[in-house]
Amino acid sequence: MIARCSIIPPNVLSRIAANGNAAQRDAALSTLATDQTMRLVRATYQLMESGAHKVLMTAAPAAKQRTIYDAQHREALPGRVVRTEGAAAGKDAAVNEAYDGLGATYDFYAAAYDRNSIDDEGMHLDASVHYGTRYDNAFWNGQQMVFGDGDGDLFNRFTAALDVIAHELTHGVTGDEARLVYTGEAGALNESVSDVFGSLVKQHARGQKAQDADWLIGQGLFTSKVRGIALRSMKAPGTAFDDAVLGKDEQPAHMRDFVHTSADNGGVHINSGIPNHAFYLAAIALGGHAWEKAGRIWYETLRDKRLKPTATFAQFARLTALNASHLFGTPARKVVVDAWSAVGVRAR
């Protein structure tokens, strides 16, 4: 392999990125992003030629690698590189929130479940901000996160809520593990898992126990014009908002109120209220930090090879009961079964 050497060292590029004018900063950041890849490729080949990789592959420490892009109000992805791993915060709040949120989510999965990024193999975390014009949504496109700025009328920017950032990243985790199909009950489980771990990331960042958490998803995304506190409530599905323009939160808290619809891929954002509430009940009953027991049970269920992509609520619930017993014994299993029973799902 022919070695290629870059003339400008990374520390100089970083100083240009921090102190240069806009054009200089753009060029430096773009070069850093490319250089990191090239250096990594070169270093990898050198290690493999020496045989050292055989030791390093088992001992390499997990580390987050974040890149934030500015989509510049267009819909082409990913956009222009504006912040890479280790770079200092700039003046763009959306960029900084995305960077910090990706970091908090990575740190949560690493600390709580020893998971190295979305794919447990150190997958780079990429996010584009300022997507579209007055774009009031956020999504995971299979490779990266995408965040809008909101319309400025009813919605604030979507990077303002840590649980939303973690929600989107968790779709990547679900895609890597259970691959729950995005329709019907499996799709509602997919959404619920993202709400569960979105909330846990927020609780972990705040150092909260289950009883002290707000159990809200997307608090702060509505402007003061909207009569509502959040997008969803895991503690009280159906109460998050009731607004003349946006309508009322239609999430059910019990299977008797399951919404049968063809809209929203079979109501994945609506019926997720049922498994959300089951998790909330289990977390409160198990006590302590919600990620330690309830979260662990749900995480191991997500990774459980018996969990099918087309799982129903009942099938998922049964696996949570089995995993609860396996991890924490019969008392925990009873708590989980009772939590599902309270929302009308049989977990035995």
């Binding site: 999504f139 997008l231 009322k248 929203d264 891929n265 994945v268 954002h269």
Partner: peptide
Amino acid sequence: DGGLVYLPARA
């Protein structure tokens, strides 16, 4: 249809 903020009233 759909979206993180799914609002049936707007759908």
